Amino acid sequence: MRLLADVAQGRLVNSLAREGGLPSTLWAGPERISQGMRSGTVPIQGTVRSGPVSLRLGFSGDDLGYAIDLGLPTPGSAFAFDPEIKVEAMWTGGVLGRSNLFAERRGQMVRVRRAATGEWRTGMANLHPFDSMVTHASDREDGLEMLLMRERMRNWRFYDNLRTDIDAPARKTPILTYTPALANDGADLAAAVATIHAVGDAEAFDSAIEDAFPGSTIDGDGDGSVAMRQRGLLRAMRASELSDGTLRYIMLCAALLAPNKPEILILNEPESSLHPSLLDPLARLLTTAAKACQIVVVSHSDRLLTGLAGDPDTRTYRLEKDCGETFLHSDEDHYSKWVWPSR
């Protein structure tokens, strides 16, 4: 999902390069695993590749869908380790089809369906292999849907690097400024909390803190940093004094209850460093925040998942591994309806 978001920011190829390039994303096992390999009666071994090297990413909602296919660069390229965008497609509705496709990119050419007549026109004929049509072929006339999709993808928010170590930015004294959304690493925590109290749902934030830490409140420490006042203590505990779990929970409250709501908010293992007693309040906090935006949570905590399962709007998907392959298991069958654009 982060790679898809990077498409809309124009930094997909750079993001892949930082993670080891295209080879680091490709399946490291054989192209096909036979039943004998899975049962252990036949050794797992490679075969001659029959399909092209391909990294495919895509998503869809009820209104719009998007997919991208990246492959190896053409021979003789000056950047031999950079993947090239081979195909892109954008369509209306949940499933790609010939009738609902309104923009596609093949090689260097982009075609866009005219909004007024439904006819196809050439949007671009010389698009660089490392540039996406999402960032380079959007316009307000025939490419309005692409423009809207780009802004939606740019609005996704990720929290997978909330630092709580001794040198974490959230433990430092910050400069307070209007901050409607917490930074990915939590560096502007004090400013984000102050913004919630000034223009956001301060009551929901204070209730979430009370739910997790009865008798406690979060406020400033006079120097602009975050401080926690707890029942029984004569002074507030500064951010530099809080435990990793307490600081992380405060950051999660600031992230989930920010005044500026994204369309999708992604949390990776939010239970890390949290005391088990905080998992039930965290589930209630997530349930409250999910009323304002879609939230994707990746978790290894059965207790957290159990707490979330009581919400009728919660969907649970299980990841399981077999012979190195990761499979998605769900009670829903809509995954079989997905269609990839062909090269």
Rank of each mutant, 00 (worst) to 15 (best):
219 D>E: 14
126 N>M: 09
198 A>N: 12
141 E>Y: 12
196 I>H: 05
206 D>F: 05
136 H>C: 14
171 R>D: 08
221 D>S: 11
171 R>C: 12
191 A>D: 13
194 A>V: 03
131 D>F: 09
145 E>Y: 12
177 T>I: 12
216 S>Y: 11
215 G>Q: 07
217 T>Q: 10
143 G>P: 13
181 A>Y: 00
150 R>A: 09
176 L>H: 10
196 I>Y: 13
163 R>G: 00
171 R>L: 12
171 R>T: 10
136 H>G: 02
149 M>Q: 05
143 G>Q: 03
134 V>Y: 01
133 M>K: 08
201 D>M: 07
187 A>L: 05
162 L>D: 02
161 N>E: 14
190 A>P: 07
131 D>V: 04
206 D>T: 02
192 A>K: 15
205 F>C: 00
138 S>C: 07
196 I>P: 01
179 T>E: 03
184 N>F: 06
143 G>F: 03
130 F>G: 15
166 I>T: 13
141 E>F: 11
154 R>V: 02
174 P>G: 06
162 L>V: 11
199 V>Y: 10
182 L>G: 00
213 F>Q: 01
142 D>Y: 06
157 R>W: 09
136 H>V: 13
201 D>Y: 14
148 L>W: 09
212 A>T: 14
176 L>K: 08
193 V>Y: 00
155 N>A: 13
178 Y>T: 05
195 T>A: 11
139 D>G: 10
186 G>V: 05
144 L>N: 09
193 V>G: 00
212 A>W: 00
178 Y>E: 04
135 T>N: 13
155 N>T: 08
215 G>I: 10
158 F>K: 11
156 W>G: 00
184 N>E: 12
145 E>G: 05
185 D>M: 12
137 A>N: 06
154 R>D: 01
193 V>K: 00
208 A>G: 04
